[in-house]
Design a protein around this nucleic acid. Structure first.
Lengths: 127, 127
DNA sequence: AGTCATATACTACAATTGTAATCGATATGT
DNA sequence: ACATATCGATTACAATTGTAGTATATGACT
């Protein structure tokens, strides 16, 4: 019964991030938060928020006169869904080929690599 | 002088993949190739190919009556560009958090992990 | 009570994307 | 030489996305 996660556009992801960070929030809280990182106009941000609610990616509480908004999906499930389709489309389905590429360019430091290695080591054995 | 890689849409990536696999190719070769994996109509595929050439992601040789097409960017550079922006937007910029997620769900087998570990080990020491 | 600020609702509009169809030129087979 | 199959060029059209603006209702302040 995996509900289909709605498609979230690039700009909309910014909104989702602030709601995942803390929710529920009012529109103006979201607007302030977003404006710390972008130069989007308040109306633009509001439109994105409204679209997310239309798409059912975000829920609204209308009990108060000033609505509050909250995510309807966890960050993890949205990320997973996106990552899946991204890796399929761009790397032909294997995370490995992506990792290889990242390692080959300078983009991973020795420390990063150590960290990644320790993450791999922590993979639970069971199941 | 890194030239800006044009934006390649989801469907257009399919076209790019077949051109990276082998090029130059005529439109009808591309069409046949794509039709093995999708049920897109020939006209649709042709449109995507034309758009890629407009975007300067694909080059055209018009010497012959039947044009041939070829990628103007390597698969690696396109992947890197996409991966960069993807990870920034979805995972807040760290490949690590993505890897962690992949490891935590079932999606990586023991063998995958072994393989990833050996890739990490092969990272060249110099520089 | 009247004014002002603010929230929500509705509308706008161009670019991109997905998904093709039509039109005109030409190579090809008969 | 003519019909036909094929290419390339042009056009179509709705949905999504980026980027807002206008209108309306209402709570807050004086």
């Amino acid at each position: 019964m995996t509900k289909k996660i709605p498609n979230i556009s690039e700009s909309e992801w910014e909104i989702m991030h602030v709601l995942w960070e803390k929710s529920p929030r009012t529109a103006s809280e979201v607007i302030s938060s977003i404006q710390e990182k972008t130069d989007w106009k308040p109306k633009t941000i509001r439109t994105l928020l409204d679209r997310l609610t239309q798409k059912k990616a975000v829920g609204v509480n209308k009990d108060q006169r000033v609505y509050t908004f909250y995510p309807l999906y966890s960050q993890e499930e949205c990320q997973r869904a996106k990552a899946r389709s991204f890796i399929d489309r761009i790397y032909g389905g294997t995370l490995k080929s992506m990792l290889v590429q990242f390692i080959q360019e300078e983009s991973l430091s020795e420390d990063d690599i150590k960290e990644l290695r320790s993450i791999l080591d922590k993979k639970p054995k069971e199941k």
